[in-house]
């Protein structure tokens, strides 16, 4: 069964003037079809304003479809009574960790969500324990969040989402504000949750290197999905991606540059290891 299924999903932002007359309509999602299976690691690429975040906000029922439908874990997000359960099934991690942390002690912040939905105290602590463990932040449970690094704060935010036991987590540019180490930590945590707990992951990012290990990639433009495939399939279309204001991983770029210079490197190189291997083969 698909955990997320969009069928001809449309979202229009309608702007009205003071009298309430429609001034302009922006179509942010334009008949999107999408199916994500439970346990997949999905990446979504697209330039600024392509509709990625609008799509993400639908999965979390922060926005409701203008037309078409979206099901999360079998629940129609347009149905008012489903909203709360949809938000429990699909957690969300945003760009800025400072906007998501509210408590003054790490463990309280992680327990905030479960407490709000009336989880019994013993179970809250249980959830806090394993959530912190799953993001590798147990050591910091009694710390104040504002003394943590960006990557650590973002991991606390992720633990807060994990404590709600979602089947699926949407990461909306979770690393945009982090330093290289923080970026690594957060992406590794997402993969770990996917592998060990089978949580479905949707990762929205502008960093091409973070996409390399995903199961499947969607590329959005003008509210539409214009490319989809495995990372290898997507990143072998260098020229096309650049046209859509995107990029490819640096290893792929070097490979492409080498091919242009007449070195026989195969297409579809994604990682440094693959590139090193390919170059050494040429040398022989």
């Amino acid at each position: 069964m698909s955990i997320i299924k969009a069928k001809q999903l449309v979202h229009e932002f309608i702007r009205r003037d003071e009298e309430g007359n429609v001034e302009s309509i922006t179509t942010a999602l334009d008949h999107v079809d999408l199916k994500v299976k439970q346990g997949q690691f999905i990446a979504i690429l697209g330039h600024n304003g392509s509709g990625k975040s609008t799509l993400a906000k639908h999965i979390n029922a922060l926005l409701a479809p203008s037309e078409g439908s979206l099901w999360v874990d079998g629940m129609d997000v347009s149905e008012e009574e489903n909203v709360l359960s949809v938000r429990q099934s699909a957690g969300m991690v945003f760009q800025n960790p400072d906007n998501q942390i509210i408590a003054s002690v790490v463990e309280e912040d992680v327990g905030f969500g479960p407490e709000n939905i009336g989880v019994p105290t013993d179970e809250i602590w249980e959830r806090v324990n394993y959530s912190l463990k799953s993001v590798g932040m147990t050591k910091y449970r009694n710390h104040s969040p504002n003394k943590l690094s960006g990557g650590q704060k973002q991991r606390v935010a992720i633990a807060g989402v994990v404590a709600m036991e979602p089947k699926c987590i949407v990461f909306d540019e979770p690393t945009a504000m982090l330093d290289p180490n923080g970026r690594k930590e957060v992406i590794a945590t997402a993969h770990e949750l996917n592998r060990k707990k089978g949580v479905t992951i949707l990762l929205i990012t502008h960093y091409m290197e973070e996409v390399v290990d995903a199961d499947y990639v969607y590329v959005m433009e003008k509210g539409n999905i214009i490319m989809e495939g495995t990372p290898r399939e997507i990143f072998s279309r260098v020229a096309e991606l650049k046209q859509h204001r995107l990029d490819v991983p640096q290893a792929t770029l070097v490979a492409e540059e080498l091919r242009k210079k007449g070195v026989r490197i195969p297409a579809g190189i994604l990682t440094r290891e693959e590139l090193v291997e390919a170059i050494l083969k040429v040398k022989k």
Binding site: H206, R245, L246
Partner: peptide
């Protein structure tokens, strides 16, 4: 950090 949050072409 003038390019934080921008897409690759924007960067």
């Amino acid at each position: 950090e003038p390019t934080a949050g921008l897409d690759p072409a924007g960067r």
